[in-house]
Amino acid sequence: MTTVDLPLVRASGLTKHFGDFEAVRGIDVEVRRGEAFGFLGPNGAGKSSTMRMVACTSPRTGGDLRVLGMDPDVDGPRIRSRIGVVPQEDNLDTELTARQNLEVYGRYFGLSRAHVRSKAVELLDFAQLADRADHEVEPLSGGMKRRLTIARSLVNDPDLLLLDEPTTGLDPQARHLLWDRLFRLKQSGVTLIITTHYMDEAEQLCDRLVVMDGGRIAAEGSPQDLIARHSTREVLELRFAPGDQDAVVPVVTPLADRVEVLPDRLLLYTADGDGVLDAVHARGVRPLSSLVRRSSLEDVFLRLTGRTLVD
């Protein structure tokens, strides 16, 4: 017999082509039971293609993939019966009520009417939509629709929940509410796979993540790991009046471990941000504004790919 520790998802050399376009170019990933795993990367990095392969709604082009120990090409429906999917774009039936959306969806998983009825009540509560249960979905706000989509993905009590950019396009309040709900799920033992291009989201939710770029994995680890490995402890950001920046670069470069030149500012990577700022001032450089902050995943990404995440 097999062991219980088998990873829920195991991909090796996984590829996905659309005609000539290689969306995913051979990635190796393992997701273990109970963890929250993230795919971080800019638009077009191959995150969604990977997610759709894991969700068994998109056949792989090459490589090996096992989800819940099964091969999606053979056991697609069986795998899908045990996972939950939150797609990038909501595909709720906007002409049904919130409750009906949950009930119809539950029926697809072979659940009895009585079961979906009580499950819908529980999930509407979880998604804080109980007061909107019998309202049509169409006029609900973006955040509400997103919460309903997440509730819908839980209708079969999935072993594995896939969330493709769960908070893209939501306002800050709606995002925090959603994060709270996802955190609760994680606490209750649901394995989560999340794609995102938001650093804060990845840092908040993920135990472990991979940084994807151009269909490949650029780095893997916990958020703290990645920052420790690929960045410095602190970052000094300097802004200058338009046109002044270029002249300053050679002056400040020797002061930091590394300097990134962005269109609107300079990033100086160092263990001691305040110390470097003093040194900058001592050399007679007068930025319009300056900021010392801790390194984030954004800096890791910049380091690994030479680009910022959200252009």
Partner: peptide, 19 residues
């Protein structure tokens, strides 16, 4: 036998094509 992950808490099942 098929190597599936044994401990499942999911309630979902696959139904036959007609159903």
């Amino acid at each position: 036998t098929r190597t599936t992950i044994p401990a499942s808490r999911s309630t979902g099942v696959v139904v036959g094509p007609v159903r």
